[in-house]
Simulated assay, not measured.
Amino acid sequence: MGACYRTRDRDLTTSRPMSEDSSVADAATLAAIRAELIDSYDEELEQEMEEDRLDRLDGVPLEGREPALSRGLYFRELLRLQHELVRLQDWVQHEKLRIVVLFEGRDSAGKGGVIKRITQRLNPRVCRVAALPAPNERERTQWYFQRYVAHLPAAGEIVLFDRSWYNRAGVERVMGFCAEADVEEFFRSVPEFERMLVRSGIVLVKYWFSITDAEQAFRFRMRIEDPLKQWKLSPMDVESRRRWEDYTRAKEDMLARTHIPEAPWWVVEAVDKRRARLNCIAHLLEQVPYGHVDHPPVHLPDRVRHADYIRAPVPDTMIAPDRY
Protein backbone atom coordinates (compact mmCIF):
# COMPACT_ATOMS: atom_id res chain seq x y z
CA MET A 1 0.00 0.00 0.00
CA GLY A 2 2.97 2.30 0.62
CA ALA A 3 3.56 2.46 -3.12
CA CYS A 4 0.51 4.67 -3.40
CA TYR A 5 2.47 7.50 -1.79
CA ARG A 6 5.65 7.46 -3.91
CA THR A 7 6.67 10.97 -4.85
CA ARG A 8 9.47 12.53 -6.81
CA ASP A 9 12.66 13.50 -4.99
CA ARG A 10 11.55 17.10 -4.57
CA ASP A 11 11.51 19.60 -1.74
CA LEU A 12 7.85 19.74 -0.61
CA THR A 13 8.06 23.38 0.52
CA THR A 14 9.64 24.88 -2.60
CA SER A 15 8.88 22.36 -5.38
CA ARG A 16 12.61 22.53 -6.30
CA PRO A 17 14.89 19.46 -6.46
CA MET A 18 16.10 18.66 -2.96
CA SER A 19 19.64 19.61 -1.99
CA GLU A 20 21.86 16.98 -0.48
CA ASP A 21 21.72 18.76 2.90
CA SER A 22 17.93 18.55 3.12
CA SER A 23 17.37 15.19 1.42
CA VAL A 24 17.87 13.11 4.57
CA ALA A 25 15.43 15.16 6.65
CA ASP A 26 12.85 15.27 3.87
CA ALA A 27 13.14 11.55 3.26
CA ALA A 28 12.53 10.93 6.96
CA THR A 29 9.48 13.21 6.87
CA LEU A 30 8.05 11.42 3.85
CA ALA A 31 8.64 8.04 5.50
CA ALA A 32 6.81 9.25 8.61
CA ILE A 33 3.91 10.54 6.50
CA ARG A 34 3.64 7.20 4.68
CA ALA A 35 3.65 5.34 8.00
CA GLU A 36 0.84 7.52 9.37
CA LEU A 37 -1.28 7.06 6.26
CA ILE A 38 -0.79 3.30 6.24
CA ASP A 39 -1.60 3.18 9.96
CA SER A 40 -4.91 4.95 9.29
CA TYR A 41 -5.77 2.25 6.75
CA ASP A 42 -4.75 -0.42 9.26
CA GLU A 43 -7.38 0.95 11.65
CA GLU A 44 -10.04 0.48 8.98
CA LEU A 45 -8.79 -3.04 8.33
CA GLU A 46 -9.07 -3.80 12.05
CA GLN A 47 -12.65 -2.52 12.00
CA GLU A 48 -13.53 -4.83 9.12
CA MET A 49 -11.84 -7.74 10.91
CA GLU A 50 -13.96 -6.96 13.97
CA GLU A 51 -17.09 -7.10 11.82
CA ASP A 52 -15.95 -10.49 10.54
CA ARG A 53 -15.48 -11.67 14.11
CA LEU A 54 -18.97 -10.58 15.09
CA ASP A 55 -20.35 -12.37 12.03
CA ARG A 56 -19.04 -15.60 13.49
CA LEU A 57 -20.26 -15.34 17.06
CA ASP A 58 -20.96 -18.75 18.59
CA GLY A 59 -24.56 -19.80 18.26
CA VAL A 60 -25.39 -17.45 15.38
CA PRO A 61 -26.43 -19.41 12.27
CA LEU A 62 -24.89 -18.40 8.97
CA GLU A 63 -26.77 -20.79 6.68
CA GLY A 64 -27.95 -19.30 3.42
CA ARG A 65 -25.53 -16.37 3.38
CA GLU A 66 -23.42 -16.09 0.26
CA PRO A 67 -19.65 -15.81 0.72
CA ALA A 68 -18.63 -12.26 1.53
CA LEU A 69 -16.57 -10.24 -0.88
CA SER A 70 -12.88 -10.80 -0.16
CA ARG A 71 -11.34 -8.24 2.16
CA GLY A 72 -8.50 -7.49 -0.25
CA LEU A 73 -10.77 -6.72 -3.19
CA TYR A 74 -13.14 -4.78 -0.96
CA PHE A 75 -10.43 -2.48 0.36
CA ARG A 76 -8.86 -1.88 -3.02
CA GLU A 77 -12.20 -0.89 -4.50
CA LEU A 78 -13.27 1.11 -1.46
CA LEU A 79 -10.12 3.23 -1.54
CA ARG A 80 -10.46 3.73 -5.30
CA LEU A 81 -14.09 4.81 -4.96
CA GLN A 82 -13.31 7.09 -2.02
CA HIS A 83 -10.68 8.79 -4.18
CA GLU A 84 -13.41 9.39 -6.76
CA LEU A 85 -15.70 10.76 -4.05
CA VAL A 86 -13.02 13.34 -3.24
CA ARG A 87 -12.94 14.31 -6.92
CA LEU A 88 -16.74 14.56 -6.89
CA GLN A 89 -16.55 16.76 -3.80
CA ASP A 90 -14.13 19.09 -5.59
CA TRP A 91 -16.47 19.27 -8.57
CA VAL A 92 -19.51 19.98 -6.39
CA GLN A 93 -17.66 22.87 -4.77
CA HIS A 94 -16.31 24.18 -8.06
CA GLU A 95 -19.64 24.03 -9.88
CA LYS A 96 -21.72 25.07 -6.84
CA LEU A 97 -23.91 21.97 -7.14
CA ARG A 98 -26.49 20.88 -4.57
CA ILE A 99 -26.86 17.15 -3.98
CA VAL A 100 -29.32 15.31 -1.73
CA VAL A 101 -29.04 11.56 -1.15
CA LEU A 102 -31.71 9.66 0.78
CA PHE A 103 -30.89 6.36 2.50
CA GLU A 104 -33.88 4.28 3.47
CA GLY A 105 -34.29 0.66 4.51
CA ARG A 106 -35.19 -1.57 7.41
CA ASP A 107 -33.39 -1.31 10.73
CA SER A 108 -29.86 -2.80 10.46
CA ALA A 109 -29.98 -2.79 6.63
CA GLY A 110 -26.58 -1.07 6.46
CA LYS A 111 -27.48 2.55 5.81
CA GLY A 112 -25.14 3.85 8.48
CA GLY A 113 -22.26 1.73 7.22
CA VAL A 114 -22.37 3.08 3.68
CA ILE A 115 -22.87 6.67 4.88
CA LYS A 116 -19.76 6.31 7.05
CA ARG A 117 -17.70 5.09 4.07
CA ILE A 118 -18.97 7.91 1.87
CA THR A 119 -18.15 10.65 4.37
CA GLN A 120 -14.95 9.07 5.69
CA ARG A 121 -12.54 11.08 3.52
CA LEU A 122 -14.72 14.06 2.65
CA ASN A 123 -14.82 17.55 4.10
CA PRO A 124 -17.66 17.68 6.67
CA ARG A 125 -18.29 21.27 5.62
CA VAL A 126 -19.10 20.03 2.13
CA CYS A 127 -20.67 16.63 2.80
CA ARG A 128 -22.81 16.38 5.92
CA VAL A 129 -25.27 13.90 7.35
CA ALA A 130 -28.83 14.73 8.40
CA ALA A 131 -30.20 12.16 10.84
CA LEU A 132 -33.25 13.76 12.38
CA PRO A 133 -34.74 12.55 15.66
CA ALA A 134 -38.45 12.10 16.25
CA PRO A 135 -40.29 15.43 15.78
CA ASN A 136 -40.97 17.49 18.87
CA GLU A 137 -44.32 19.02 19.81
CA ARG A 138 -43.73 22.15 17.74
CA GLU A 139 -42.51 20.25 14.68
CA ARG A 140 -45.57 18.00 14.76
CA THR A 141 -47.74 21.09 14.13
CA GLN A 142 -45.65 22.25 11.12
CA TRP A 143 -46.00 21.39 7.47
CA TYR A 144 -44.69 17.83 7.33
CA PHE A 145 -41.70 18.59 5.09
CA GLN A 146 -40.71 21.76 6.93
CA ARG A 147 -38.08 20.31 9.27
CA TYR A 148 -36.41 18.47 6.38
CA VAL A 149 -36.28 21.59 4.21
CA ALA A 150 -34.09 23.25 6.86
CA HIS A 151 -31.38 20.66 6.15
CA LEU A 152 -31.31 20.94 2.36
CA PRO A 153 -27.95 21.93 0.85
CA ALA A 154 -26.73 25.32 -0.25
CA ALA A 155 -24.50 25.69 -3.31
CA GLY A 156 -21.42 23.45 -3.12
CA GLU A 157 -22.88 21.06 -0.56
CA ILE A 158 -23.88 17.40 -0.35
CA VAL A 159 -26.42 16.25 2.25
CA LEU A 160 -26.92 12.58 3.09
CA PHE A 161 -30.24 11.87 4.82
CA ASP A 162 -29.99 8.88 7.16
CA ARG A 163 -33.73 8.28 6.93
CA SER A 164 -35.79 11.09 5.51
CA TRP A 165 -39.30 12.36 4.89
CA TYR A 166 -40.14 8.78 3.96
CA ASN A 167 -40.48 8.07 7.67
CA ARG A 168 -44.15 8.87 7.15
CA ALA A 169 -44.54 6.04 4.64
CA GLY A 170 -42.58 3.62 6.83
CA VAL A 171 -42.17 3.68 10.58
CA GLU A 172 -44.87 6.29 11.24
CA ARG A 173 -47.42 4.37 9.19
CA VAL A 174 -46.55 0.92 10.54
CA MET A 175 -46.28 1.97 14.19
CA GLY A 176 -49.47 4.03 14.07
CA PHE A 177 -47.79 7.39 14.72
CA CYS A 178 -49.95 9.06 12.08
CA ALA A 179 -53.42 8.57 10.63
CA GLU A 180 -53.96 6.84 7.31
CA ALA A 181 -55.26 10.15 5.98
CA ASP A 182 -51.85 11.66 6.77
CA VAL A 183 -50.19 8.88 4.80
CA GLU A 184 -52.43 9.50 1.80
CA GLU A 185 -51.70 13.22 1.92
CA PHE A 186 -47.99 12.39 2.04
CA PHE A 187 -48.29 10.24 -1.09
CA ARG A 188 -50.11 13.07 -2.87
CA SER A 189 -47.54 15.66 -1.80
CA VAL A 190 -44.18 13.93 -2.01
CA PRO A 191 -43.97 13.57 -5.81
CA GLU A 192 -44.66 17.28 -6.23
CA PHE A 193 -42.28 18.16 -3.40
CA GLU A 194 -39.47 16.17 -5.03
CA ARG A 195 -40.21 17.54 -8.50
CA MET A 196 -39.95 21.02 -6.99
CA LEU A 197 -36.54 20.17 -5.50
CA VAL A 198 -35.31 18.85 -8.83
CA ARG A 199 -36.66 21.88 -10.73
CA SER A 200 -34.76 24.11 -8.32
CA GLY A 201 -31.52 22.44 -9.40
CA ILE A 202 -31.03 19.92 -6.60
CA VAL A 203 -29.70 16.51 -7.63
CA LEU A 204 -31.89 14.04 -5.72
CA VAL A 205 -30.90 10.38 -5.37
CA LYS A 206 -32.96 7.85 -3.37
CA TYR A 207 -31.67 4.48 -2.14
CA TRP A 208 -33.54 1.61 -0.51
CA PHE A 209 -31.27 -0.92 1.22
CA SER A 210 -32.83 -4.36 0.94
CA ILE A 211 -32.10 -7.28 3.28
CA THR A 212 -33.86 -10.56 3.95
CA ASP A 213 -35.89 -11.52 6.99
CA ALA A 214 -33.17 -13.98 8.07
CA GLU A 215 -30.40 -11.42 7.62
CA GLN A 216 -32.16 -8.83 9.78
CA ALA A 217 -32.70 -11.43 12.49
CA PHE A 218 -29.00 -12.29 12.31
CA ARG A 219 -27.89 -8.66 12.58
CA PHE A 220 -30.22 -8.02 15.50
CA ARG A 221 -28.75 -11.09 17.21
CA MET A 222 -25.25 -9.67 16.62
CA ARG A 223 -26.26 -6.47 18.39
CA ILE A 224 -27.65 -8.43 21.30
CA GLU A 225 -24.43 -10.42 21.64
CA ASP A 226 -22.04 -7.49 21.26
CA PRO A 227 -21.89 -5.15 24.31
CA LEU A 228 -20.38 -2.40 22.14
CA LYS A 229 -23.38 -2.41 19.79
CA GLN A 230 -26.29 -3.11 22.10
CA TRP A 231 -27.10 0.61 22.12
CA LYS A 232 -28.05 0.28 18.44
CA LEU A 233 -30.99 -1.98 19.29
CA SER A 234 -33.89 0.20 20.41
CA PRO A 235 -37.34 -0.97 21.59
CA MET A 236 -38.64 0.29 18.22
CA ASP A 237 -36.18 -1.98 16.42
CA VAL A 238 -37.33 -4.97 18.46
CA GLU A 239 -40.96 -4.22 17.64
CA SER A 240 -40.09 -3.89 13.95
CA ARG A 241 -39.04 -7.56 13.93
CA ARG A 242 -42.55 -8.58 14.93
CA ARG A 243 -44.05 -6.37 12.22
CA TRP A 244 -41.81 -7.52 9.38
CA GLU A 245 -44.74 -8.16 7.02
CA ASP A 246 -46.35 -4.81 7.85
CA TYR A 247 -43.09 -3.07 6.95
CA THR A 248 -42.90 -5.09 3.73
CA ARG A 249 -46.36 -4.00 2.64
CA ALA A 250 -45.60 -0.39 3.55
CA LYS A 251 -42.30 -0.50 1.61
CA GLU A 252 -43.93 -1.98 -1.50
CA ASP A 253 -46.64 0.68 -1.43
CA MET A 254 -44.06 3.44 -0.93
CA LEU A 255 -41.83 2.34 -3.80
CA ALA A 256 -44.79 1.92 -6.15
CA ARG A 257 -46.26 5.34 -5.43
CA THR A 258 -43.13 7.47 -5.18
CA HIS A 259 -40.91 6.02 -7.92
CA ILE A 260 -41.08 8.95 -10.33
CA PRO A 261 -38.93 9.76 -13.38
CA GLU A 262 -37.58 12.93 -11.78
CA ALA A 263 -36.54 11.08 -8.60
CA PRO A 264 -36.52 7.29 -9.05
CA TRP A 265 -35.77 4.77 -6.33
CA TRP A 266 -32.63 2.62 -6.52
CA VAL A 267 -32.69 -0.68 -4.61
CA VAL A 268 -29.37 -1.82 -3.18
CA GLU A 269 -29.11 -5.54 -2.37
CA ALA A 270 -27.54 -5.31 1.08
CA VAL A 271 -27.22 -8.81 2.53
CA ASP A 272 -23.48 -8.61 1.80
CA LYS A 273 -22.46 -5.36 3.48
CA ARG A 274 -19.23 -5.00 1.52
CA ARG A 275 -20.86 -5.43 -1.87
CA ALA A 276 -23.69 -3.11 -0.85
CA ARG A 277 -21.28 -0.32 0.09
CA LEU A 278 -19.25 -0.60 -3.10
CA ASN A 279 -22.32 -0.91 -5.34
CA CYS A 280 -24.00 2.10 -3.74
CA ILE A 281 -20.92 4.36 -3.91
CA ALA A 282 -20.15 3.34 -7.49
CA HIS A 283 -23.75 4.05 -8.52
CA LEU A 284 -23.81 7.39 -6.69
CA LEU A 285 -20.69 8.50 -8.57
CA GLU A 286 -22.48 7.75 -11.85
CA GLN A 287 -25.37 10.06 -10.99
CA VAL A 288 -23.31 13.26 -11.18
CA PRO A 289 -21.07 13.81 -14.21
CA TYR A 290 -17.93 15.31 -12.71
CA GLY A 291 -14.53 16.28 -13.98
CA HIS A 292 -11.08 17.25 -12.78
CA VAL A 293 -10.63 20.46 -10.83
CA ASP A 294 -7.18 22.02 -10.87
CA HIS A 295 -5.82 23.14 -7.51
CA PRO A 296 -2.88 25.51 -7.08
CA PRO A 297 0.15 23.82 -5.53
CA VAL A 298 0.49 24.21 -1.78
CA HIS A 299 3.76 25.73 -0.55
CA LEU A 300 4.45 25.62 3.17
CA PRO A 301 6.02 28.93 4.25
CA ASP A 302 8.96 29.07 6.63
CA ARG A 303 7.89 29.40 10.22
CA VAL A 304 8.29 32.88 11.70
CA ARG A 305 10.62 32.84 14.70
CA HIS A 306 11.03 35.66 17.24
CA ALA A 307 14.18 35.92 19.30
CA ASP A 308 12.28 37.26 22.33
CA TYR A 309 9.77 34.38 22.44
CA ILE A 310 10.31 31.81 25.19
CA ARG A 311 7.89 28.92 25.37
CA ALA A 312 6.14 28.71 28.72
CA PRO A 313 6.37 25.35 30.53
CA VAL A 314 3.20 23.27 30.96
CA PRO A 315 2.47 22.50 34.64
CA ASP A 316 2.64 18.82 35.51
CA THR A 317 -0.87 19.06 36.97
CA MET A 318 -2.24 19.82 33.49
CA ILE A 319 -0.68 16.81 31.73
CA ALA A 320 -2.82 13.72 31.21
CA PRO A 321 -1.31 10.63 32.85
CA ASP A 322 1.02 8.70 30.53
CA ARG A 323 -0.50 5.25 31.06
CA TYR A 324 0.42 3.61 27.73
Results as ranks from 00 to 15, higher is better:
63 E>Y: 04
10 R>C: 14
172 E>H: 03
111 K>T: 06
160 L>W: 05
157 E>T: 00
99 I>E: 10
69 L>E: 14
213 D>V: 03
137 E>R: 11
170 G>L: 07
225 E>W: 00
179 A>L: 13
176 G>W: 05
79 L>M: 14
265 W>L: 12
211 I>M: 06
91 W>Q: 06
315 P>Y: 05
56 R>K: 07
223 R>Q: 03
271 V>G: 06
221 R>K: 10
234 S>W: 00
282 A>W: 05
258 T>G: 03
297 P>S: 12
315 P>T: 08
239 E>D: 08
25 A>K: 09
162 D>R: 00
219 R>E: 05
226 D>R: 01
129 V>D: 04
177 F>K: 05
53 R>H: 11
77 E>Y: 10
219 R>L: 06
281 I>H: 10
167 N>T: 04
226 D>P: 00
303 R>D: 09
249 R>T: 13
319 I>G: 01
134 A>M: 07
48 E>Q: 09
33 I>T: 13
148 Y>H: 14
35 A>E: 15
61 P>M: 05
20 E>D: 14
163 R>I: 03
144 Y>A: 09
198 V>P: 00
15 S>C: 03
266 W>H: 15
263 A>P: 03
60 V>A: 03
41 Y>E: 15
83 H>G: 15
101 V>T: 08
29 T>K: 13
251 K>Q: 04
121 R>V: 12
106 R>P: 01
38 I>A: 12
88 L>A: 11
150 A>K: 11
178 C>A: 14
273 K>G: 06
292 H>E: 15
289 P>I: 01
320 A>Y: 07
140 R>A: 10
7 T>S: 10
22 S>A: 15
155 A>S: 13
242 R>P: 00
35 A>M: 08
169 A>V: 03
49 M>L: 15
166 Y>L: 07
260 I>A: 13
223 R>M: 07
153 P>L: 09
66 E>C: 06
148 Y>I: 09
264 P>A: 12
75 F>S: 05
155 A>L: 08
233 L>P: 01
259 H>F: 04
320 A>H: 09
303 R>E: 13
189 S>G: 10
253 D>N: 02
228 L>S: 07
238 V>H: 00
248 T>R: 11
94 H>W: 11
126 V>K: 02
291 G>N: 02
262 E>W: 02
125 R>F: 08
61 P>G: 06
143 W>L: 13
42 D>Q: 07
187 F>M: 07
161 F>G: 12
133 P>L: 07
257 R>A: 06
137 E>A: 15
89 Q>S: 14
98 R>M: 13
161 F>T: 06
306 H>I: 02
12 L>Q: 12
149 V>P: 02
73 L>C: 05
78 L>C: 08
83 H>P: 00
43 E>G: 11
206 K>P: 01
253 D>R: 08
207 Y>Q: 03
81 L>R: 10
171 V>S: 10
125 R>T: 07
190 V>H: 02
238 V>A: 12
106 R>M: 08
14 T>R: 04
212 T>E: 06
224 I>T: 11
89 Q>T: 08
228 L>W: 02
172 E>I: 01
321 P>I: 03
59 G>M: 04
154 A>T: 12
261 P>L: 11
49 M>G: 00
112 G>D: 00
103 F>V: 04
244 W>Q: 04
261 P>G: 12
251 K>V: 04
86 V>F: 13
83 H>S: 15
189 S>P: 00
74 Y>H: 11
274 R>I: 11
312 A>W: 04
129 V>K: 03
244 W>L: 08
207 Y>I: 01
40 S>P: 00
311 R>H: 06
161 F>R: 05
